[in-house]
Design a binder for these strands. Sequence first.
RNA 1: GGGCGGGUAGCUCAGUUGGCUAGAGCGUCCGCCUUACACGCGGAAGGUCCGGGGUUCGAGCCCCCGCCCGCCUACCA
Length: 1039
Amino acid sequence: MSSASQPNDRPPPLPKKYVPAEHEPAVSEKWHAARAFHADPARVASGSAEPFCILIPPPNVTGALHLGHALNNTIQDILVRAHRMKGFETLWMPGTDHAGIATQSVVDKRLKAEGKPALADYKKTEAQGGDGRSQFIARVQDWKDEYEARITGQLKAMGTSCDFPRQRFTMDSVCARAVREAFFRLFKDGLIYRGKRLVNWDPVTQTALADDEVESHDVESHFWYMNYPIVDDSGAETGEFVTVATTRPETYFGDTAVAVNPSDPARKHLIGKKIMLPFVGRVIPIIGDDYVVMPDAESDDSKAKFASGFLKVTPAHDTNDYDIGLRHDLPQINVMAPDASISDAHGWEDVGDAGWALGLSREDARQEVERRFKDAGLLADKKPYTHAVGHSYRSHAAIEPYLSDQWYVRVTDDRLKGSALRAMAQQQRTSDTSPASPDNPHDGGLTFHPARYAKTFETWHDNLRDWCISRQLWWGHRIPVWRKRVTLTDKTWADELAGKAGLDDIIDGGWPSAAVRITRVSDGTEVDPKTDLMPPVGDTGGEYDIFVCALSDDEMAQFEATGFERDPDVLDTWFSSALWPLSTLGWPDGDAAAGETGIADFPAMLGAFNPSSVLCTAREIITLWVSRMVMFNRYLLGDDGQNSSDGQLPFRDVFIHAMIQDGEGRKMSKSLGNGVDPLDIIHSHGADAMRFTLCEMTTQTQDVRMPVEADPETGKNTSPKFDKGRNFCTKLFNAAKFACMMLDEHKGGEPETVKPGDLEPIDRWMLGRLAQAIERIDAALERYEFSVIGGTLYELLWKDFCDWYLEGIKPTIKTSPSQRVVLQQVLEAIVRLLHPVAPFITEVLYEQLAGRRLGTVECLDLPTCSDDDLCATTGWPRVEASLADPFVLESVGRQQRFIEAIRQVRAQHQVPPKRKITLHVDAEMAAKISGVGQVTEALAGLDTITTAPPESDSVAFVFEGAEQRLSNLADAIDAGAERERLTKLIEDLDRSIAALDKRLTNPGYTEKAPKHLVDETRAQRDQKAADRDQAAQRLGELA
RNA sequence: GGGCGGGUAGCUCAGUUGGCUAGAGCGUCCGCCUUACACGCGGAAGGUCCGGGGUUCGAGCCCCCGCCCGCCUACCA
């Protein structure tokens, strides 16, 4: 080997063994130093590249990433890396989510555990006029900084090719501007409003929750049957009772009616009479409402089974009762404090003789009510009952339906909900509500993979209710609304609405960065200041809440001077998440974002990368997040024309991936102790191994199982599943090491370009298999079939390349220059194909292979699309279809089956691998064997292939109806083993001949099945019969 | 209650418009440290495709009924 043929810049020789930890940090460093993952919006704008963009589902800063994140991010990285190599201008936008209630809870918990001042203490400070709020937020901010850094570190350790310099956080200044703008526009357009109604109240964290933040659990409880005395017009008890059935006796203090079904023959006569609430003394009517279920002990319906026919109506503490209350104009009496204790300080005035209940928790109150009713002889019955109760998804406390003032997004408006439905791909719609408009190019562009999840999306919107967005928390985007309560008269109009505060300017539209909405305090209805409240006020006088929303805090200084106060609440986390496709790309003001971040091309990002290509997420997020991104993106990027709500989509495809469960089908969780930490797997197996395993596991089903075991060395949780990925990477490394060795040891005379037609059959076969694999992988990428990608790569590398090709070329590689070209090119192609799944090891190997290029193969294109010389930015392999030559694939395939038949004989007779044996064949077979080159000798362990008959002991085997013989197996042939082998062979053949005969003697089959199938079956039958005869004859000879 | 997914080898899973004797990896058994790889090589055993009907020449796949598991969703009578 001359020094001239060994370039100086060749990378260091490969070590004996691949240890991921020895390479991964350096490879990662190399990528980031080369800015390999940097997206350039200018290339999209100029039309020199198509965009491919994925926005990461921002992980919560509540904690470190788990295996589900590893799967989610592996999938995204595979797509991103493959498209980058295919020449797309690729952006993977990373970031994290502030996760309001979740983070606030977890920080509070940690502060408590560390014995430091916690949320309750800071609340006290705030109440005393101190700055407890900002102090507590600073503690949360510390936590966020810690975990954001950890998450970023984890993402890098996994090898994700995110554009990290562009990383965002849902509460950073860029995202905050998007929140402010979106809130303002929705407020101004009447899509955000304030409403007083029952909300899902979490009494532990003391905040309202959205419907989908509530999870229902079955609770074992009881039905209580309580007697309410009927009273006459004078209020005197008549001695009669009605018995209400309830699961919530502790809310009876707030009852304002008892309802019966108006068609209930046994009870309808009581409608119009009155009852008196025991202890409270409140006299309330018996009303008729057909919501009430009539009792039926025989019914399958548990309600009918347990019902008494009388329903206590508690409008302030039950959602259905609330509706009944509205229908019958009943008072709403709230008998609870925000911590769900019984209280007379929040709307309950007629406590009467029920003072004993005040201050009790709802649980204690339930027992006390039961005890008091029982003592008074008013408890008719109590039966055990199991039912579903909503619980907070954060504190896990039972949700209290609670009457309060909150902010809502009017998602039920057609501009939002209808727009989301119209976004769906036509072929995935099942209902005909809100059909896509053929004139709107953005309609119908949203496609779910797998398709069944489109139904989840659609039905969610069909049943949508307005979205409660205010949260009584401190960690989050503070609601940008200022309020003042005024009593309006003609006299106060001039002081309050006009003049000094500038409200009339806002109302008249002269102040475009502020908007006002006014509600009447008495009933919470909204009034239009322009038409309803202009002087003279006249009949519309009374108490009003004036709400001003403004784009900047500075503008509000003058309002604060006149007594306006900012809403103390923050927004639901999902409000800012819903804006993720906009905020991360600089909307609404790319210049301002550029100024703040120093990222100069921020203004070009939105135009280049929204809509993004695909959103990859778990199915539980469809309602919480996907829906809202679609609605907001479309609304806020709508044209300013008539179609203002139906603008651009945030993404075109949604891929919903499986959830990882443990070996028993349980969710992985901290409390069960069955979680697997991705970093542990990276340490024990390597990032590539983890990624390969996760990729291959990702089928189109809804869950995948991963048996969890303790690592015997570290004691950490791991799974044997990852061994497959590790073994695969080791195999790849060893194969590459061997190939490099071959290329280094033998060289000279390699052609610049080799033509497939001039090559050995085994080379052409390998190129054919490569071409087939590329085709399959490309198709699988389009369809998000990740397990197909993993499986195809596994088979290509391990079976085709290592087991057959490398073994097959061992005899010829030394002397065949063109085979060396093929070896190098095929392995480089495989390494490139593997890169999206296993980026680290392929980057290491790519460096080696790129330094050993000898020439190219016609019809196999390995383009390079950058001068970085990194696998991460090189080109994706392309092949011409002609490379997959059916004749070569078939004839080499047949030869492989022939070799396997010889191996079976060898194993049956326990011939040691080293022993070379002799094959005796007829002239026809000899021609076939030599037709595919010299691979048979190497792969079957033969010394000679001859048409001469054996001179010593030999063993026969049957292949394609002809008898072949092997000799020189051992010093003496084991006749017993041979008989056993032949007997079994004959049994197998008899079985399949019988099956084929059965089919062929069935006239239905021969007449109705396609002719080529029948011919095929017939040929098979004949072949097997011939095989059987040969075997039987041989067995006879042995006997 | 409604919707969705799943039930295939001991385990984890494939099985692409119905058509080879239903496949892979791990595990098990047999033989091998064959000069890339024992995280490996060669071979083997192992299945009432949840149960029952139906359509079809032909069903793991399509239809109906039932059983079991999981997820989502809905009432706090």
